[in-house]
């Protein structure tokens, strides 16, 4: 079965079968979007909450433009927005840096932004594995819609 790797600020789609994987999510978030009827799945790896770039050359770096563009691409393949569900993982705080500066809460801001964008786009969030202080590798099986989260020194968790 085909496995596709999604880098930072990247997105890939698969249809019917295949595994989408993104490695070492820290404060970044991996968003799995899935149309269960057509088995169209996508995985986006976002790094920041909101796109404020002037020329928007990296839409997948940001939660807002990343999710929206992915939904559009899924719809172009025939997916229906009303059927699409989401699962997300990431948003950790890797270092216990003192103070509550922009660095300390990037993970939390990413989680909040992903939640908000999904809500605005009418996408149901069915499961999440977010926050904490550990990095996550996320596997997403497009045939079943099942996610797996791998954490260093821990058993794998179903998503």
């Amino acid at each position: 079965m085909e496995k596709q790797t999604i880098g930072i600020a990247d997105m890939k789609l698969a249809r019917t079968q295949g595994t989408l994987v993104t490695y070492a999510l820290g404060s970044c978030i991996g968003i799995c979007l899935w149309d269960p009827l057509l088995k169209i799945g996508a995985l986006v790896h976002i790094m920041l909450p909101i796109n404020m770039e002037k020329n928007r050359i990296s839409p997948f770096k940001y939660a807002d433009t990343g999710i929206r563009l992915t939904l559009t691409k899924m719809e172009q393949m025939g997916a229906k927005r009303s059927r699409i569900v989401a699962k997300i993982a990431g948003g950790a705080k890797m270092f216990n840096v003192p103070g509550n500066g922009s660095l300390g809460n990037i993970g939390q801001r990413n989680i909040a932004s992903v939640h908000q964008v999904l809500r605005l786009e009418g996408i149901r969030l069915v499961k999440e594995d977010v926050g904490g202080s550990a990095a996550r590798t996320l596997f997403f099986d497009v045939a079943t819609g099942e996610g797996t989260v791998k954490i260093y020194g821990n058993v794998e968790r179903k998503l």
Partner: peptide, 26 residues
């Protein structure tokens, strides 16, 4: 600042400065 330690996948640690300064550059 006072240094902090994490033992984890290094990809996630290297993205800490990237996320902090990633707003205008890839």
């Amino acid at each position: 600042s006072v240094p902090q330690i994490a033992i984890d996948m290094q990809g996630a640690m290297i993205t800490v400065p990237m996320a902090a300064y990633g707003n205008q550059s890839d």
